[in-house]
Design a protein around this nucleic acid. Structure first.
Lengths: 220, 220
DNA sequence: CAATCAATCAATAAAACAATTGAATGTTTA
DNA sequence: TAAACATTCAATTGTTTTATTGATTGATTG
């Protein structure tokens, strides 16, 4: 009797892992983690056909990793209830450990241009207190509107080069985006460094911040 | 360029998840988490044929979840280097959340006999300080010998009923075993409760304790 | 109420996976 | 060096996944 229960748990864990066992579904999940999105947009963001995206999303839904609700003719998907973000973080952590090369790339490494330092959440919190830093959200405007870290300034990466003048030169810039997967903040920090600013990036992104229960600001 | 890297990470995360996407591999991993084991034994523990177990283990090895070394004519498998235990814990946490019924079963619930309380690691640490509890390892002797929590007393579940007299009646017993998956400590606590002792169980097991960097005792 | 749009369903063909069998490898023991 | 042993490899079969296509459902708009 004791072992039957164990078997059942193994099966459930495996089923859950199977739901994550597709690059497309991981990508969808990462996008859903940014906030509620209709299928159409998720399909566009991931380069999948509607039908295919829909099926993958339903696979995720069956596993409890995402939830869906209807609004008008759209079906909006959002993250599931459980500790989904920590689960994704654990996956990433293991990936980062086994594929150390990737980590080297993310932190800048040896590629000529200066390495980009990574700032942890705790570090960020203490640094924000002395007002010596500018917190920069480099995600698209719309994602920023749906929620961002308190006090963050939004300059999407696309617009960063043209809007450089808006940034103060006497404060260090800490950029963040969607999470460790997302390269927006890395590209932003590299660009800023080329322009002579002191720039680093937050080690994880908005979804992780929100999942940690830290305060979030929204536009209206 | 930014996105190609993202794609690559998605693919690696998915590959990792795929390695976990089989009940047999989860089971193998849980057994490997108890300590180094030769293929033959892992096969026996999971009820798989040698060849099949071997192939699953190699799948896990390719994913970096386990490592292998040769000793004599045996090949011993052990846990991989990265944060594998936290990853398994994250999987379990999500499973526990979505399948709440299972959690109800594990905590005893409504099944007539009294519920079994679950003690967290922190709780255990503070309770151990006042010496009012007996820490009971109910895993087989051999696993106990390979490593156990400091101060724990080993009485394998099989032998528990016959060796009840060894347990002090004036202290609360906290049982533990291999982890949240493992039902040994639950069965032990239920048995002890039937016999009139105050018994509860540690929420996770030995591998989690070890992975948390807490001190471990060994025989010899 | 017909037309439109987002999303899902259903069916298919191609690709990936799992368990089994028997042969091959590498180590120890006789 | 031959025999025994634990493990891995290779080939096979049956079963799941996957992406695609076209039809269908539900909800809005004219």
């Amino acid at each position: 009797m004791a072992d039957r229960t164990g078997q059942q748990l193994y099966a459930q864990a495996a089923e859950l892992a199977r739901a994550l066992a597709s690059p497309h579904r991981i990508a969808l999940l990462e996008h859903v983690a940014q906030g509620e999105r209709p299928v159409e947009r998720l399909a566009a963001l991931t380069g999948l056909s509607m039908a295919n995206a829909s099926q993958h999303l339903q696979h995720l839904r069956r596993a409890g990793l995402v939830l869906a609700r209807r609004e008008g003719k759209n079906v909006l998907y959002r993250l599931g209830e459980g500790p989904v973000v920590p689960l994704l973080a654990a996956l990433r952590a293991q990936v980062a450990h086994t594929h150390a090369e990737v980590m080297a790339l993310v932190t800048g490494g040896e590629n000529g241009m200066g390495a980009v330092e990574t700032v942890s959440r705790d570090e960020l919190l203490s640094r924000l207190r002395d007002e010596t830093v500018l917190l920069l959200d480099v995600r698209p405007e719309e994602e920023f509107a749906q929620g961002h870290l308190p006090g963050a300034v939004n300059v999407p990466l696309d617009a960063l080069e043209k809007r450089l003048a808006e940034l103060p030169r006497d404060r260090e810039v800490i950029a963040y985006c969607r999470g460790p997967y997302c390269m927006l903040s890395l590209d932003a920090a590299l660009l800023l460094q080329r322009e002579g600013l002191a720039a680093s990036r937050l080690s994880d992104g908005f979804p992780d911040w929100k999942a940690a229960g830290l305060p979030v600001e929204r536009l209206n």
